[in-house]
Simulated scan of single mutants.
Amino acid sequence: MDVRLRRVYEPASSDDGKRILVDRVWPRGLSKDKARLDEWEKDAAPSTELRKWYGHDVDRFEEFIRRYDAELAEPERASAFGRLRELAGQGTVTLLTATKDVDHSQAAVLAARLRDSG
């Protein structure tokens, strides 16, 4: 599976494939036109409680992954993840997030899970 990661604020690229925002909250200061999304899979994002607990503290990333994996097993998130897996099975997908540290984000966790499931 060709699953890529980018910040949603970066310009779209012709090789992005399907552009999917995986944040629960719309990115600050970004218009829908400029985002150039194909989908917004907010149900795949971590819960508000988990997102606030994590606070993008890299020291908490391993525990964040463990807790987020547990959330991804919940029906609503499992369904959203299934949709992402379906899209990734059809061609290139680029998971988008507003987070500055993409490598320590829910998008990185989702990308890894998608690659493992393919």
Rank of each mutant, 00 (worst) to 15 (best):
D16P: 01
Y68T: 01
D2C: 07
V58N: 12
L114E: 00
R51P: 09
A80R: 06
P27Q: 07
R60P: 11
K18V: 12
D38M: 08
L37C: 08
A80L: 13
D38K: 03
T48P: 00
Q106N: 15
A88P: 08
F81Y: 07
K42L: 06
L50N: 10
W26G: 12
R113Q: 11
T94N: 03
L114N: 03
I20M: 00
S13F: 01
R7E: 01
M1E: 06
D57W: 08
K42G: 09
K32Q: 09
L21H: 05
E74W: 07
L96M: 04
L50H: 03
R19H: 04
T92K: 00
Q106C: 00
S14M: 03
V25Y: 15
D43F: 13
A44D: 11
E41T: 01
R66W: 10
R85L: 14
L87C: 04
D15I: 01
V8P: 07
V109K: 05
S31F: 08
A108H: 05
P75M: 12
E63W: 06
G17D: 15
V93Q: 05
R77V: 02
K100R: 13
Y9S: 02
G118M: 13
L30Y: 00
P27R: 02
R115F: 02
D16M: 12
F64Y: 07
F64E: 01
H56L: 14
A98M: 12
M1N: 04
D16N: 15
I20S: 03
D16T: 11
T94M: 09
K34N: 08
L37M: 10
V3T: 09
G17S: 14
D23N: 10
D59W: 08
R24T: 04
S14V: 15
A111E: 00
D2E: 14
A112W: 05
G29L: 00
S79W: 11
A108W: 13
G82F: 10
V22F: 07
A108F: 02
G118I: 15
D43P: 05
W53L: 07
T92C: 09
V58M: 07
K42V: 00
R85S: 12
S79E: 13
S105Q: 00
L30E: 01
P46R: 06
L110M: 03
G29R: 05
